[in-house]
Design a protein around this nucleic acid. Structure first.
Lengths: 103, 103
DNA sequence: ACTGTAATTAGATTTATGCCTAATTGCAAC
DNA sequence: GTTGCAATTAGGCATAAATCTAATTACAGT
């Protein structure tokens, strides 16, 4: 649980999660999207992997990262438990869409 | 949004949130609950306040901290947005612990 | 085996967190 | 106004996080 929130506490990592929502991506594709050195992105991916928010598998010469929702559901359950039921949450789903802050 | 996840990324701060779920508490009451120096707890409360997860008001000689759910709902909405639709979230509240149904 | 591309690991540096003790502020009661 | 308790701020220190460049590993194609 700790690792999940920690992982999501960095804007780059949340952005990666957002991107993977559209389907699996290679490490290189992800790295390209950010104005930072590739190894830095790799480090972020490592954090996400340790939090079990993504998994990775080799695909030929590249490595494909893919979203895993199970861990995120835990975080969601925590929030629901802490801050009340999901009432009104669906309506906020709209408001949130512009999140995606860049690095 | 960043501050919210950052705030929730520390176990002590999540614990404080849990405690405040049961109603407002004074700074001293909160500090007592942890095996750490009071100023350290104060620092955590500051982080929670900056994340707008709690607010504080003076009550005579002490200061009462109280949970604010609005910011938490944003975080929840983010998770819902990222890891699946809101469909079934309420019902999932029950079954989340063991189940890990794929998206 | 050699070369080129994909990705990670290693190592170093800077900045941010988390913790402590000591000093300070705010209020209440005397 | 001074004493006492509640709480925060200040200052210092140790560990962790985020970033970079350089070196390394892994695979594909030749």
């Amino acid at each position: 649980m700790n690792t999940i929130f920690k992982a999501l506490s960095h804007p780059v990592r949340r952005q990666i999660v957002v991107m993977l929502r559209g389907g699996p991506m290679s490490s290189g594709q992800i790295a390209e999207a950010f104005d930072m050195a590739w190894p830095s992105v790799t480090a972020h991916l490592k954090v996400l992997r340790r939090a079990d928010l993504v998994d990775a598998e080799r695909d030929g010469t590249s490595i494909r990262y893919r979203l895993k929702i199970s861990a995120a559901e835990e975080a969601m359950a925590f929030l629901i438990e802490m801050f009340g039921s999901a009432s009104g949450v669906a309506s906020r789903e709209q408001t949130l869409r512009e999140e995606s802050e860049p690095a």
